[in-house]
Design a protein around this nucleic acid. Structure first.
Lengths: 209, 209
DNA sequence: AAGATATCTGTACAGCGCTTAGATATGAAT
DNA sequence: ATTCATATCTAAGCGCTGTACAGATATCTT
């Protein structure tokens, strides 16, 4: 777990402590969960004093923002990859599956991503970009496959609804209490796809019924 | 804000400190938000020493569990009331609206309710009861209005999907970043109902399309 | 009246986020 | 090469947190 360049001589100036801190944070996050993510623990993991991070981040929240930003980046790229590996209308389903799978496979990171968005008037610019690009992929894919791009309001509504549904499912998928349901429905992927499909969001983004 | 029976003589034994602590916690939660909910602050608000709560709760999490349990209780009763004030298929919509409205009007409490459920193998029995009763209302209402009660799997799926959708929407409704969308769609209720209805969950819980 | 028990206080400890003052290394200008 | 401004780090410390423990005080049982 520990970095610190194996005890001996780390130069006084780290080189790229900012990067090292974000990496340390993600390492801790994966290993110990979100509750272990204290600024001091991150500094420890990176092998520096507890005050060092304050030269690279205004406070703890700003460090977590940097972690969250990388999360949105990864999620975006995974969604993009999922989209190319499907065709036609199923691209939307693929996006939804990719979204929820990401949340399931990186529960701690996923929580940091949304915690960073809570109680904030606006997101830091770079994080907003990464998040928006993931969000727009849903919208764009809807347009590419039948949705009317001139019906702006309906399009926004459909995207928002899809996003809400995916997020809700993503959160529930992380709850142990849903395990019995997942089991009943035969494994996680079927559960996931079943709910997504039942939501009627991804396979049928058009109006009417 | 402060309790403490107005400075002078509170008897050494409180009478019902457990109740007082939960009330103090909910008061703090509403006034200062979830981040202000420290055990010490709750004890202060109730006018007792920082160690006193440990005679009524094993740790902080158990106090929050008690708060969360009351949250599920309130949510359940509000959903029940909403159901009676609607008829036919619209009862499901009413349930969804009531759910999301509760989350919007009690964002801090809503967060405590779900935080208490995170990373737990199983919920404390009483909380589980309150939560399950809210969950079952959705299921029951579906059965009352057209869903086939013998198709157990599909029913579970529909309920789970509805729950996921409502939770996702509830969370998003609490995010400031969605304000512009809400505004565009003309106020919060229309946004809420529009998304719920678009999700196709509540108004049409039956199969097929 | 006396003792067992439940409830509360006081004190303490380690860990937290964050601030400040001072040490050390780097890069630019001379 | 020397000097100096600046960037980056450490050490120490403040007030907060959750929690443990010993002892005080009230209530209950007999």
């Amino acid at each position: 777990m520990s970095e610190a360049k194996s005890a001996e001589s780390r130069p006084y100036h780290h080189g790229d402590l900012r990067r090292a801190l974000v990496d340390a944070a993600r390492r801790l996050l994966e290993a110990e969960g979100p509750s272990a993510l204290s600024l001091r623990a991150v500094a420890r993991e990176a092998g520096v004093s507890p005050a060092a991070p304050y030269h690279h981040f205004k406070d703890k929240a700003e460090l977590l923002d940097a972690v969250a930003k990388e999360g949105w980046e990864i999620l975006g790229s995974q969604m993009a990859e999922a989209k190319t590996s499907a065709a036609g209308m199923q691209q939307l389903t693929a996006l939804g599956v990719a979204y929820v799978c990401f949340a399931r496979d990186n529960p701690a990171l996923y929580r940091v991503m949304y915690d960073a968005a809570r109680d904030k008037e606006a997101l830091p610019a770079e994080m907003q970009d990464n998040k928006a690009s993931a969000y727009c992929m849903v919208r764009d894919t809807m347009v590419e496959h039948g949705a009317d791009p001139t019906e702006e309001q309906h399009l926004e509504l459909a995207s928002a609804a899809a996003w809400c549904g995916a997020h809700g499912l993503a959160e529930m998928a992380g709850f142990k209490q849903f395990d019995h349901l997942k089991a009943e429905l035969g494994g996680e992927r079927p559960f996931l796809e079943a709910v997504l499909s039942h939501m009627g969001l991804f396979p049928k983004p058009h109006h009417g019924c």
